[in-house]
Design a protein around this nucleic acid. Structure first.
Length: 251
DNA sequence: ATCTATTCCTGGCTGC
DNA sequence: TGCAGCCAGGAATAGA
C-alpha cells in the first residue's frame, strides 16, 4: 500500500511528464474527475504526506491511492481504470481495484502533522510530550506525523528497537533520537529503491519497487529476527497487523 | 485525549 | 475444480 516512499516515487516519476501539461478532458467516475481541472495547466507535481498533489492556477488536485490506487502516465486501460485525464500530450490514468482511493479538488492542503523527512529532532521530540497513546497508534496518525503507514512504522520501530505498544510520553530522549533517525533512514532507503511493492503498488511508469525485499519484520511472522534470531511476532494494534521482534523490541 | 468498532472494497488465499 | 469464508488495511465516522 502506498505510503510516503511509494507516493514520493510516483511523484518523482510523474513530475517530468506532467509539469506544464494541460488537462483537455476527464472521463470516468464523477467523484474522481472534478470538472474544475478541465482546461487547466499543471504547474507543479509534489507530495503532501501520502497525497500526490497537482497544483494548478486555480487550486490543487489531491490524489490519495489508499490501498490499490495507481496513477499512470500513458498506462494501459484495465477493468479497474476508474478515471482518465486526457492531456495535451499523453494521458493520465487512475486505476484502483478496491476503489478506496480518492481524488479531490481543494484550495489548501488538509491540516496534518509534520513531514517525517523534514521535521528536525527538537520538534519531533516535542510531538510526544504529554501523549499517553501507544507509539504505533500515534505514528499511524496523519494528524501527528504525515506519511507513515503500517509497513514503515513496523520497520522503523524495529530499527529503533522500540516496542509498538510503548507509551509515547514515557519515551526517553535517546529512544526518541533513535526513532527519529530510524524513520528517516528507512524512508530514505525505501525511496532509493522505488518503494515497496507487496501486491499492487507501481510508480507512475508502471514499475514496481524493490524495498519489499529488504523488509525486516513486516509480514515476517515466525521468521527469525535478522539481529537476534528470535521468531518475529504478530499482534494487532489499532486494528493493524503489527510485526516486531520480542527480544530486540522490549515492552 | 484516547480507544474501539464500523464502513468502504475486492483479489487472493485457505480449507473442505 | 469449486466455493464459502476470511484476510489485507487508510481514513472517515460514530460512540464510549
Amino acid at each position: 500500500m502506498p505510503e510516503l516512499p511509494e507516493v514520493e516515487t510516483v511523484v518523482r516519476t510523474l513530475r517530468p511528464r506532467l509539469t506544464g501539461r494541460t488537462i483537455v478532458a476527464a472521463t470516468g467516475d464523477p467523484k474522481l474527475t472534478p470538472a474544475a481541472v478541465i482546461g487547466q495547466t499543471i504547474r507543479e507535481v509534489s507530495r503532501y504526506g501520502k497525497y500526490i498533489s497537482l497544483r494548478f492556477d486555480q487550486g490543487l488536485l489531491l490524489v490519495h491511492l489508499r490501498m490499490t490506487g495507481k496513477l499512470l502516465f500513458d498506462g494501459a486501460r484495465t477493468p479497474y481504470t476508474r478515471a482518465e485525464f486526457v492531456l495535451d500530450q499523453g494521458t493520465l490514468l487512475y486505476d484502483d481495484i478496491r476503489r478506496f482511493g480518492r481524488i479531490t479538488w481543494v484550495q489548501i492542503y488538509p491540516s496534518q502533522g509534520p513531514d517525517p523527512l523534514e521535521v528536525p529532532f527538537p520538534g519531533f521530540a516535542n510531538l510526544f510530550a504529554g501523549r499517553r497513546a501507544r507509539l504505533k497508534t500515534l505514528l499511524l496518525d496523519q494528524q501527528f506525523l504525515r506519511g507513515l503507514g503500517n509497513i514503515y512504522v513496523d520497520e522503523a520501530l524495529f530499527r529503533a528497537r522500540l516496542h509498538p505498544l510503548a507509551v509515547c510520553a514515557d519515551l526517553s530522549r535517546p529512544k526518541l533520537e533513535r526513532l527519529h533517525a530510524a524513520i528517516r533512514e528507512v524512508l530514505d532507503e525505501a525511496i532509493a529503491l522505488g518503494g515497496s511493492s507487496i501486491s499492487d503498488y507501481v510508480d507512475g511508469n508502471g514499475e514496481r519497487g524493490t524495498f519489499q525485499n529488504f523488509h525486516r519484520v513486516y509480514r515476517k511472522t515466525g521468521e527469525p529476527c535478522v539481529v537476534c534470531g528470535k521468531a518475529i511476532e504478530r499482534i494487532v494494534v489499532t486494528q493493524r497487523g503489527t510485526h516486531f521482534c520480542p527480544r530486540c523490541q522490549r515492552a
